[in-house]
């Protein structure tokens, strides 16, 4: 299994190498050129610092979006009248390209972390909400019937039924929103910013420092891969009933 993963990553690097050899342009350096830069201590330290800032922002944003989406998703999933009240609003707001609100968000929250975290949360919130809503609606009604026959009420069903039943879907949502979150954060960091991997990559591009630019992209990809693996590992740990 681990061998196949390594082969998959190797194929990606070989494709990059092949494209670089084919194009032979300074704006597409080869993997060894980028690796040489990353192996330099100073460049790696600078890049790691920006990656750490970006990941912290993404993680804060995901948590900030997850909590209200979970509460609203469960409430809508279990109460038809609440669903009728809330879901139409969500369906209207979901397709609006919220990234267009970035200048406005910056006016309200400033140029620091607040506006970037808020922007990412705003976008991933809807993905969480819709996924959790569908997940709650899909929970077999027999579970609730059986739980009620044992005297369980709504509040105790949260911990005993709803959250465990939702866990696999929550992990799927985290995987999905992690990708979206990183992409959105990249955009927000290119806008009047002096830190984060988005700023680093765009700054390197403006200086024509292509090896640095690709170093940033490669490290961002690696960080994304590690986070995905962490989510998968957590899913295996917390959802042991899932058939492999």
């Amino acid at each position: 299994m681990r061998g196949k993963r390594l082969i998959s990553l190797l194929i990606l690097i070989l494709l990059w190498q092949a494209l670089s050899s084919l194009v032979r342009q300074p704006f597409l350096p080869s993997p060894p050129e980028v690796a040489r830069l990353l192996l330099k201590g100073s460049a790696f330290r600078a890049l790691s610092g920006h990656i750490a800032i970006s990941l912290l922002r993404v993680i804060c944003a995901l948590i900030l979006a997850f909590v209200p989406a979970l509460v609203l998703g469960i409430a809508s999933g279990r109460s038809r009248s609440f669903d009728r009240l809330v879901s139409p609003m969500m369906y209207v707001l979901f397709p609006i390209p919220k990234i267009a609100l970035l200048p406005l968000v910056i006016l309200f929250l400033g140029l620091g972390n607040g506006s970037k975290i808020f922007m990412v949360s705003l976008i991933v919130f809807f993905q969480y909400y819709l996924n959790i809503l569908d997940g709650v609606k899909e929970i077999d009604s027999h579970y609730f019937d059986s739980f009620r026959s044992l005297g369980g009420g709504f509040l105790s069903s949260l911990g005993h039924l709803i959250l465990p039943a939702l866990l696999p879907r929550i992990f799927s949502s985290v995987r999905l929103t992690l990708g979206t979150g990183i992409a959105v954060l990249f955009l927000t960091e290119t806008y009047a910013s002096r830190s984060g991997i988005g700023w680093y990559i765009m700054d390197a591009w403006s200086r024509l420092a292509y090896a640095e630019m690709y170093g940033g992209i490669a490290l961002l990809g690696a960080a994304g891969y590690l986070l995905m693996e962490l989510v998968n590992l957590s899913e295996r740990r917390f959802c042991p009933w899932r058939a492999p």
Binding site: H142, Y143, D145, S146, L161, P164, L167, W241
Partner: peptide
Amino acid sequence: FQDPQQLLPWL
């Protein structure tokens, strides 16, 4: 029940 739908898959 007909299918043992009351069994919780996570337990």
